[in-house]
Design a protein around this nucleic acid. Structure first.
Lengths: 341, 341
DNA sequence: AAAAGTTACGAAAACGGTTTCGTGTTAATA
DNA sequence: TATTAACACGAAACCGTTTTCGTAACTTTT
């Protein structure tokens, strides 16, 4: 057991002052070569490393980033997180992660905990409850205190900060037009309750595509699934009682559930009914047929978010740079669940 | 923009000493009620919160836990992580996460970064490369410095520390016996190269079950898939050229790939060939038929690991408690990919 | 030889807290 | 009235760094 060695220890052992040790290790030319060599050798031998906490206190920056996400067991968020971690790490930052579990209170409490010195900035995707309550005072207060925040995916216009979002609307339109170009006319949408801004955008994109091609909107073809309930029955009922030849789902779980149900009802995917989902995750890759899906490029989103944050934190400008919003272009990955020409 | 307020600020404003403020806020009875009230009111008004970094420096503990995992986009690890985060949070700890990406160097560098004061202890699952190299000096050094470590899932006997593992062998035996009890005789195993201790244990469990029922081991029925390559062809070839009526896969991706290939080859699952996978993740739940699978109870593992670590960190005993290994009992979840009596 | 400049180092403040100990003032006791 | 105890607070050390500034001891310049 050899506890960590400090500057003070080195100073005592070598009979010099703490300042001298500090300077020697930073290669200051104030210190003679002789002394520097002695100190460096000693430090190396005892594997001296400066204490991060002391540095943080001194420099008033921790080189820690706080990441707050609603859920970790979720493909999209994990990929975003990987992007964040990768970029942050390459820039010498560590990542402290908090899971809000879709709860407003947890989001608030966790952020306040971290804000008291533990981190230099936040990257955040809003919890469902926060979006529902539409209460963002905790974010405003942090911004007020000068703590930078970057929002991604689940964002809000109420907060002025850097943001990274997906072009949900555009890609939804593109997805639906992919159906249309293959001859589909009765195109359904399966979505979630739309206090999620992303669901909303996706729905708008869907409607836009129909409009573009003069297809009348049939509200019966839009299924809004409640949170948490068993969806299988609702989906089964949905397909049994309607004529549908294509369906866009706002996530891959819905998509793969649909596929399974559709196949059990005796339809062929993609010939009778085509399917497109969101999130190019593991489910989409290993279903059969493989799912045509919207790749959200989570890792890219994460990298962009981290870059926004670090740029702002490290900016030495007196003027705060204007807030930017980066729109990541989603990609439609065409696979077996659609007819691709 | 109202920057964070410090004890010094309060002291200056109220014309008392810093010590008085500190004591007042801690409700010390050294301070008169009058003064306490004034100080508390002021602190509350300005939303004073003590600076975590200063506390960490003073107390020489950060209340941060470092978690190092090989991959984050991975169901098992995310569930473990959720367990860790949940327990740690409830005990007032934050979690700093580093992804080793299966790389020895990243594991070493990240841990050394964090060890210089940023965290009080580690929870770790070894990277593939670390297991391959069998080099654990970085862990030994940290333990030497008095930093506690808890290993989970991918552990090693070389290191004396608390551990949390799954009873991989036993549950594999159970899984294979589930095949046998349904009449299967030609039971295959699809596994990974076995520098992973878990794969090894699972293989042993498989062999044990065959032995228990006097079924001869056929090495041809064991398929070891190399890391990273395209597995589809290998699996297809495997099933085309062998008589197989059941297959145990060491993860759910292999399992669902098998299922897909088996079905394409015209066999029925589970009647012609039964399948069991490891990891009760999203793939197992949404395949059709649903996969019979080994639930690893990642969240429980995470909670246990965090509890081990925090117990040790907070222990005031002078004597170090002996190291413990907690074995989590996996559960076989019987679903549609096997014949269940 | 006096003045000026270098060199090589140490003292001390600062970051933001906690805590021990000392002390002036008042109240209780002898 | 002198002594002691209780009260209420402040000074200072400490956690481990960095950094500014001061200064002895030489060296160089004139």
């Amino acid at each position: 057991m050899k506890p960590k060695i400090t500057l003070k220890d080195i100073a005592r052992e070598l009979d010099v002052s703490i300042s001298t040790v500090s300077k020697a290790l930073k290669n200051s030319k104030e210190i003679s070569k002789d002394t520097k060599d002695r100190i460096k050798a000693f430090a190396k031998f005892y594997n001296y490393r400066p204490n991060n906490i002391a540095l943080s206190l001194k420099n008033r920056r921790t080189k820690n980033i706080g990441v707050v996400i609603p859920d970790i067991v979720h493909h999209f968020f994990t990929t975003v997180f990987r992007g964040i971690e990768k970029y942050a790490n390459s820039m010498g930052y560590n990542v402290i992660i908090c899971i809000s579990d879709e709860s407003f209170d947890k989001e608030v409490i966790n952020m306040e905990m971290l804000a008291n010195g533990s981190i230099d900035g936040f990257i955040l995707s809003l919890s469902a409850e926060t979006q529902l309550k539409n209460d963002f005072t905790h974010l405003k207060e942090l911004l007020d205190q000068g703590i930078p925040i970057v929002l991604f995916d689940r964002v809000t216009e109420e907060i002025a900060c850097d943001k990274v979002v997906l072009n949900d609307g555009v890609i939804s339109t593109e997805a639906v037009e992919h159906f249309i170009s293959a001859g589909s006319k009765k195109i359904a949408l399966i979505t979630t309750e739309d206090f999620f801004n992303v669901s909303e955008s996706r729905k708008e994109g869907y409607l836009q595509a129909l409009k573009n091609h003069n297809i009348e909107v049939d509200e019966n073809l839009i299924l809004t699934l409640p949170h948490g309930l068993d969806h299988a029955n609702l989906i089964t009922e949905f397909f049994q009682n309607r004529e549908i030849d294509a369906v866009l789902c706002v996530n891959e779980i819905f998509a793969v559930q649909c596929m399974s149900i559709i196949q059990h009802l005796g339809y062929n995917v993609p010939n009778d009914i085509s399917i497109i989902g969101f999130t190019d995750g593991i489910l989409s890759k290993y279903s059969s047929p493989k799912l045509t899906t919207v790749a959200q490029h989570g890792e890219t989103m994460g990298e962009n978010a981290a870059k926004f944050l670090i740029d702002r934190m490290e900016s030495t400008e007196m003027e705060e740079a204007p807030f930017k919003t980066k729109v990541i272009d989603a990609t439609l990955i065409k696979r077996g669940s659609t007819i691709n020409k």
